[in-house]
């Protein structure tokens, strides 16, 4: 783009910002004028009781497996060994967490380098028993895109950090202070071709959850 065109474009952006504030007022006014009668906000009931401890862990494992994840229970301190065992041929294994002896994931790494990463190991913050999802906070990812670009993703999760359902899970987001996070339930997948399930769509080809 020439400097002149870019200058014009920026000028337009400013003008559209002015138009934008008019649009803002117009939209808010139209919404107010719509006069939808007040409806009270319900309080959320119906949290699932799945017991605690082993029952919760068992339910989490079953849910994660149903979402095509591999789940293993490992001893404290056994994460490195479990990863080596699960991916014996992996040329590159990295992690953003210094807790393990893997190569440190570089937050500033080139995306093309991340895309060649065989295995990324991340600490999961908590798991959700009803659907097998693991909450992954930005601080555990290395970079936001790493868990999506790596060929295989391993999430280590403390078995005592499993909540029953999404009500409990989303309650935790009330105090989540980071810029980004994601629930991850299984490896990336698609069923867009004749509803046939294909694992490894754009993101990782496998997801392993190590319960410590």
């Amino acid at each position: 783009m020439s400097r002149k065109r870019r200058h014009n474009a920026l000028g337009r952006a400013e003008r559209s910002a002015q138009n934008g504030s008019r649009a803002r007022e117009a939209i808010l006014e139209a919404v107010r004028r719509a006069g939808a009668p007040f409806a009270p906000l319900p309080s959320i009931v119906g949290a699932t009781d799945m017991g605690t401890g082993e029952a919760l862990t068992a339910r989490f494992m079953a849910s994660a497996q149903a979402a095509s994840a591999t789940v293993r229970i490992v001893e404290a301190g056994g994460v490195e060994a479990a990863v080596r065992e699960a991916f014996p041929g992996a040329a590159s294994v990295a992690s953003a967490s210094p807790a393990w002896g893997f190569e440190q994931a570089d937050p500033a790494a080139e995306a093309s380098a991340l895309a060649r990463l065989d295995v990324l190991v991340c600490p999961g913050a908590f798991g959700v028993a009803e659907n097998g999802a693991v909450w992954l906070a930005e601080s555990g990812m290395g970079s936001r895109v790493a868990p999506f670009l790596a060929q295989h993703l391993v999430l280590a999760l403390d078995h005592s950090a499993i909540v029953p359902d999404m009500h409990a899970a989303c309650d935790r987001l009330e105090t989540f202070g980071e810029g980004y996070g994601a629930f991850v339930a299984g490896p990336s997948k698609t069923a867009d071709i004749e509803q046939t399930l294909v694992i490894g769509a754009h993101g990782p080809r496998s997801l392993t959850v190590l319960l410590t």
């Binding site: 659907n131 999506f148 980004y180 997948k189």
Partner: peptide, 16 residues
Amino acid sequence: TGQPLSVYTSYFRRPA
């Protein structure tokens, strides 16, 4: 789809 949750539920709060 009958899944209990989609694979990725991402929560974008701040730009990187």
